[in-house]
């Protein structure tokens, strides 16, 4: 159960190899979290992460479970199996996602669909059964890794951005639908995070680290926030960017 100060006792990371996801799990384990489920495609990578977590002084119980965001037919069963094995999941982190290659994706529908299918379709498909289980258990927080890229379509990465815009809108609506159920949704909008996903890319201004995002997430859980930005100042920065005239916005080097 989540305690009065926002510490959780169990977490499911969907996209368990994510740098942001694992940074968050480490902070949770530092506090009360003693049950961790890492779900993803890369069994070996997940096992290595699990081993590292189990070796921590708090010795959490770590499970590794197979999950592929693109295999939507399997999602209901995946959710049922995980929640049956762990009857009270305090926190579920939707951390999977692909950045893709924008130049290719904007000309090759197949490539664009891969991004959209994983980031949006896959997320919708797994979040609905998760939300149902949270309603049943009467509590639980669903943390969704959206992105500032979804706040306004950017010339340089609008395919990815549109997938996050869809995910963000879906998550906000899901949050509203869960009011009164005991469950809640926290939408996280990081800026540029120096993680596996952005390896080799030039950091954008106001970039942050997986650890920085993890801090924003744990603080957001404790305060009961519905949306957090990482870094926090991006909230105001994006509020301005959103209202710039289109011609100006398009020419910005971002």
């Amino acid at each position: 159960m989540k305690d009065a100060l926002g510490a959780v006792q169990s977490v499911l990371v969907v996209g368990g190899g994510s740098d942001i996801g694992l940074a968050t799990v480490r902070k949770l384990v530092d506090r009360r979290c003693r049950t961790v489920v890492l779900a993803g495609r890369d069994r070996e990578g997940l096992e290595a992460a699990a081993k590292e977590l189990r070796a921590r002084p708090e010795a959490p119980v770590v499970d590794v479970v197979h999950f592929d965001a693109n295999d939507v037919a399997s999602h209901q069963r995946f959710v049922d199996e995980v929640f049956d094995a762990h009857p009270d999941l305090d926190l579920t982190l939707i951390a999977f996602g692909v950045l893709g290659q924008q130049p290719e994706a904007e000309r090759d529908a197949g490539k664009a669909l891969q991004i959209v299918t994983t980031n949006y379709v896959g997320a919708v498909s797994v979040m609905i059964p998760i939300a149902n289980r949270l309603r049943e258990q009467g509590h639980g927080t669903l943390v969704v890794l959206s992105s500032v890229a979804g706040e306004r379509a950017r010339r340089s990465n609008f395919v990815y951005g549109s997938s996050k815009a869809g995910l963000d809108a879906f998550s906000q609506g899901l949050a509203d639908s869960l009011v009164g159920s005991g469950a809640n949704v926290l939408v996280v909008r990081p800026g540029f995070v120096r993680s596996k996903m952005t390896e080799g890319l030039k950091p954008a201004p106001m970039s942050t680290t997986p650890d920085g995002v993890a801090d924003a997430i744990t603080a957001g859980i404790a305060s009961g926030a519905t949306t957090v930005w990482a870094p926090g100042a991006l909230r105001w920065f994006m509020a301005v960017l959103r209202h710039l005239p289109r011609v100006v916005f398009r020419r910005l080097p971002i």
Binding site: M1, K2, D3, A4, L5, R135, G138, H139, G180, S181, G182, A183
Partner: peptide
């Protein structure tokens, strides 16, 4: 009945029952 959100006197960590 519809689930009700409950807390203790401190009004922290609401859950539905």
């Amino acid at each position: 009945p519809q689930p009700s959100l409950l807390t203790g006197w401190g009004r922290t960590a609401p859950t539905a029952a």
